[in-house]
C-alpha cells in the first residue's frame, strides 16, 4: 500500500497537523515505511487466533459508584487562558 499526496493531506487535516506542501512528500515517505512494517505483520498467518484489544491479557478493574472528587474549578481555571462566569472561553465555534 502506498499513500498518495492527497491521502497524506487528508490524514494531516483529520489530525489537525499543519503539514506544508513541501513536507508532504517526506511525511508520506515516513508513513509508507510504517505501512511497510504493517504489511509484513499482516502477512503472518493468524488463523484461529482471537484478536487482542490490549497487549496485556488482563481484565479491567471496576470502580464503585461513589463520589470521590471535589470541586476544583478555581485551580483548573487559574491555568486557563480565558474564563467568564465559570466557563472556559475558546474561539467561536459554530457547526
Amino acid at each position: 500500500m502506498s499513500l498518495t499526496h492527497q491521502d497524506v493531506a487528508r490524514i494531516a487535516k483529520l489530525a489537525r497537523i499543519n503539514v506544508s506542501d513541501e513536507e508532504i512528500a517526506a511525511v508520506g515517505n515516513q508513513l509508507n515505511n510504517i505501512f511497510g512494517l504493517i504489511e509484513k505483520m499482516q502477512a503472518v498467518n493468524t488463523d484461529g487466533i482471537e484478536p487482542m484489544a490490549h497487549p496485556q491479557d488482563v481484565s479491567l478493574r471496576l470502580r464503585e459508584d461513589i463520589v470521590t472528587q471535589t470541586n476544583q474549578r478555581e485551580a483548573f481555571q487559574a491555568v486557563a487562558p480565558q474564563v467568564e462566569k465559570g466557563l472556559f472561553l475558546v474561539p467561536k465555534v459554530i457547526e
Binding site: 470502580r63 463520589v67 472528587q69 465559570g86
Partner: peptide, 24 residues
C-alpha cells in the same frame, strides 16, 4: 442515572454551576 461519571468519581448531579463537576 449513576451518582458519578463513567470514568471518574465526579458527581453527575444536574444543574450545578458551570465546571464545578469537571475533574482532571
Amino acid at each position: 442515572n449513576t451518582a458519578t461519571k463513567i470514568f471518574s468519581g465526579t458527581s453527575t448531579a444536574f444543574g450545578a454551576e458551570p465546571n464545578t463537576q469537571a475533574s482532571a
